[in-house]
Amino acid sequence: MDFAVFWNFRAELTQAFQITALLTAIGIAGSLCLGAAMALAARGSHVAISVPILFVIDFLRNVPVIVKLFLFYFVFNLAPMTSAALSLVLHQSSYIADTFISGLRSVPREQAESSYSLGLTTPQYARFILLPQLLRQLAAPLKTQFIEVLKNSSVCMVIGIQELTFVTQEIEHRTFKGYEAAFGVTAIYLLLALAISAGTWLFLERKRHSA
């Protein structure tokens, strides 16, 4: 094994790391907001809204990321980064919406009724009753979904975004050291996944009782 290849490609790898991190951050933030919004709409009492939203969630889940990239990049002719960010957000928001729907379902309706009868407003109910329970239950599944964004960001190489997986292939093409490259880049991905895991713990799980 020849790991000097990493040092030779340090500039490319650093830049690729930044792009992967940026795409993952955009993907996590966007899909969390969109997913939560879709879950609330799907749990609402208006069938005319909830069923189409469920249909959209189901549609987004059943189409691979690579096909979404194809849509934005080849059919709509958007810029590569825009297509990548949109695809990642749309793809993961469907899974996050499903996570939120099952979380919302697990909180009994009686809790809402009792809090209203005790004089709590809707924002107070959401802040003090619903959210602490949701965070406790959803911390672990949401962590999985966030890591999934990181994993899916590697697919964006197919539209020419120079992130970590793209650089792996580039190293292989230029030096035939694909094995070393794949090994090292996997280590970087695992570190990023650990970082996401630690971040979720810091912001969601650690605060679970005081949120």
Partner: peptide
């Protein structure tokens, strides 16, 4: 924990 593309690369190159 690693992207599926990386697994494909491991097998193909490794």
């Amino acid at each position: 924990a690693s992207p599926q593309l990386m697994v494909i690369f491991w097998v193909y190159f490794g």
